[in-house]
C-alpha cells in the first residue's frame, strides 16, 4: 500500500468511527486530522510509506480519536474561538490533569485511600484522556489497592472462623 493510500485508508476508518458524531463535527474532525497529518509529514520531510506509518501510529487508532472527541463535546466552541493561538485538538496539561497526577502519586503517599480516590475523580473529570485510558487507570488502582485489602479482610475473616471452630 502506498503512502497516499495509507492516509486515505486512515481517514476512511476515522470517518467510519465518527459515524455517531453530528455530520458537521465529523467533517471538522476529519479536516483537523488531515491537516495534522499533512503538518507532521511536512515536518518529517518525507512522504514514504514508513514515515506515513509512523505519523499514523503516533496519532493512534481512529476509534481513540473519536472517543476523545466525544468526551470533549462538553466545552463550548467559544473556548477555542477566545484563544485563536490554541491548538485545535485538546492536548497538553491542564489544572485537572496535573491535580489528578499529583493526587495519584503524592496524594497516595500522604493521603492513603483519599488521595487516589480524589485523583481518580479528577481523571474522570478530564477531557484529555479517553474513556478507555480512564478505565485502565481506575482498574490499576482498584486491582492493586482495593482488591488486596478485600483479600486480606477475607483471609482474616477466614482465620477468625477457623480459630472459632477449634
Amino acid at each position: 500500500m502506498d503512502a497516499e493510500a495509507l492516509v486515505h485508508d486512515y481517514l476512511g476508518r476515522l470517518e467510519a468511527a465518527a459515524g455517531s458524531l453530528p455530520p458537521s463535527r465529523r467533517a471538522e474532525l476529519t479536516g483537523e486530522v488531515r491537516q495534522h497529518i499533512e503538518m507532521a509529514l511536512a515536518e518529517a520531510g518525507g512522504r514514504d510509506e514508513v514515515t506515513v506509518r509512523n505519523v499514523l501510529d503516533r496519532l493512534g487508532p481512529p476509534d481513540e480519536i473519536v472517543d476523545a472527541e466525544r468526551g470533549a463535546e462538553g466545552p463550548p466552541p467559544a473556548w477555542a474561538a477566545a484563544q485563536p493561538a490554541a491548538p485545535a485538538l485538546p492536548s497538553g496539561w491542564g489544572g485537572t490533569e496535573i491535580a489528578a497526577i499529583l493526587l495519584l502519586t503524592l496524594g497516595a503517599v500522604f493521603l492513603p485511600i483519599i488521595g487516589p480516590l480524589l485523583g481518580l475523580i479528577f481523571v474522570w473529570a478530564s477531557v484529555r484522556w479517553t474513556k478507555r485510558q480512564k478505565a485502565v487507570a481506575t482498574g490499576i488502582v482498584v486491582i492493586l489497592a482495593i482488591l488486596p485489602i478485600i483479600l486480606l479482610l477475607g483471609v482474616r475473616a477466614g482465620g477468625v472462623v477457623t480459630s472459632g471452630q477449634l
Binding site: E97, I101, I113, V123, Q133, V136, I140, V141, L152
Partner: peptide
C-alpha cells in the same frame, strides 16, 4: 504484616496509574 503491605500497595497503585496516564498523554501529544 498486613499494615506495611496495605501502606505500600496504595502508593504503588497510584504511581502506576499516574505513569500510565502520563505516557498516554505524551503519546497523544507527539
Amino acid at each position: 504484616m498486613d499494615v506495611p503491605l496495605f501502606v505500600l500497595l496504595i502508593p504503588l497503585a497510584g504511581i502506576l496509574a499516574a505513569v500510565y496516564l502520563v505516557v498516554a498523554m505524551l503519546r497523544r501529544r507527539s
